[in-house]
Simulated scan of single mutants.
Amino acid sequence: MRRNQSMVNNFLLLGFSNLLDLEGLFFTVFLTIYLLTLTGNSLIIIVTLTDQTLHNPMYFFLRNLSFLEICYTSITVPKMLGNLLSEDKTISFLGCAFQMSIFLIIGAAECYILAAMAYDRYVAICQPLHYTLIMSSRVCYELVAASWLAGVPVQLAQTSLVFTSYFCDSNEINHFFCDIPAVVNLICGDVSINELVARVEVVLLAVIPFALVLMSYVCIASTILKIPSVEGRCKAFSTCSSHLMVVVVFYGSGMTVYLKPKSSHSLDTDKFLSLFYTVLPPFINPLIYSLRNKEVKEALGKVFLILHP
């Protein structure tokens, strides 16, 4: 990784150091959100594993999504919390590369898991008679495995390209984690190749699964409109809109950061936008996917009765 030598041995994550008076407040808020995120997603995993009635493809994907959300938020938030309390805000060269690569791989996996969940709902609503045949256990495991592996080659190549570049004398990253735009901003010389690879990466690992999600929901909406019951249509549309809201927040903010040309980058803006796809989706995932779900509520009730008879 150090093929092209530079004077940079570590980086300084500036985070929210320009708002020193608010760092204590930020720490409290982000720590609370992080703990609730871990608790909510862990409960989903436990409940969907222990309750036999939830052993179906929809909750299988939800369980994997919750595990991804825990990993996704844990690769960035603990370091951010530590920096908010400490005067030492450095991260090693290899630590920064590791954080970036794992964050990108998990992010790509989440994009495709969301697409797999949309496909599952499409089959369940549009082809209910063939649902069991199409969404077999083997297909579900293959979709999850493909989601996890889809981003590995591209993201490792992207990270290697960034960290084999020559960095300028400055090692200050205007971000709370090692995100691509903020790190690329420190590279000396032409970064057009980095920007091109980043755009290809976004198309392959974000735009394509996002398009699959939209296509699935167009078909779902068409089918739901044919349901004679008004109450049934409203309930189905409400479920779809909640899922699409998270998809839009997750994809939209990420694409805004990664697809902008370098000349229009505002790193301060990118830093706050990134909170929408690093902190909020993992936090609200348990609420919109599960805690409003009658089956999960009943399963949670059973777990609490066992723990507190």
Rank of each mutant, 00 (worst) to 15 (best):
L13H: 01
D21T: 10
F26M: 14
F26C: 07
I33D: 04
I33K: 11
N41P: 03
N41H: 03
S42W: 03
V47A: 14
T48I: 01
L49V: 03
Y59R: 04
S66D: 08
S66T: 04
F67Y: 01
L68T: 08
L68C: 14
P78M: 11
L84K: 03
E87R: 09
E87V: 06
L94W: 13
G95A: 02
G95C: 01
F103I: 04
G107L: 01
Y112S: 11
I113L: 15
Y119N: 10
D120Y: 08
A124K: 08
H130V: 04
T132L: 08
I134G: 08
M135L: 13
L143P: 00
A145W: 11
P153N: 07
A157G: 09
C168S: 08
N171K: 05
E172D: 04
N174R: 13
F176D: 01
P181Y: 01
V183G: 01
V183F: 03
L186R: 00
I193G: 01
V197M: 10
E201I: 03
L205H: 02
V213S: 03
M215P: 07
A221M: 12
I224T: 14
L225N: 14
K235H: 14
T239F: 07
C240A: 15
V248A: 14
K262N: 05
S266K: 00
S266P: 00
D270F: 15
D270T: 09
K271A: 07
L273Y: 06
Y277I: 06
L287S: 08
Y289K: 01
S290Q: 09
R292H: 12
E298K: 13
F304V: 15
L305K: 15
